[in-house]
């Protein structure tokens, strides 16, 4: 079922940023940095996406450390598989785009 999912930009970047455990605000900062400031996740959007991805088991919530109330998240094996499929889809998009428009864009 999960094989042919097209991820939204937000989902893609959130999953990428969770290669390492991060909390909510850390994800927002990392995504902004990865995209050179272009993608700014709003908190409500991120919260909804995180809950949906935990439900689908693409990511997990790590046990809360003592003395901290911030919840950390990390990508799962299933999440990694989704990300790999998406990466090859994106490569196909880029390949086709370059093949057809390649000459023109390099003028």
């Amino acid at each position: 079922m999960d094989e042919h999912i097209v991820l939204t930009e937000a989902t893609y970047y959130i999953l990428l940023s969770l290669y390492r455990p991060r909390h909510g605000y850390g994800i927002m900062q990392q995504v902004e940095e990865l995209s050179s400031g272009r993608v700014r996740l709003a908190a409500g959007t991120l919260y909804g996406a995180l809950n949906a991805m935990v439900e689908k088991r693409w990511i997990v919530q790590l046990p809360v450390e003592d003395g901290s109330r911030k919840k950390n998240y990390q990508i799962t094996e299933r999440g990694l598989a989704i990300l790999r499929t998406e990466l090859s889809r994106l490569q196909e998009l880029v390949r086709n785009g370059e093949e057809i428009m390649g000459g023109q864009t390099h003028d």
């Binding site: 937000a10 908190a43 409500g44 909804g48």
Partner: peptide, 14 residues
């Protein structure tokens, strides 16, 4: 900038 929703999907859900 402070927003609660940054994409069409979450705006639609709301």
């Amino acid at each position: 900038a402070f927003d609660l929703f940054s994409d069409l999907d979450s705006k639609l859900t709301h």
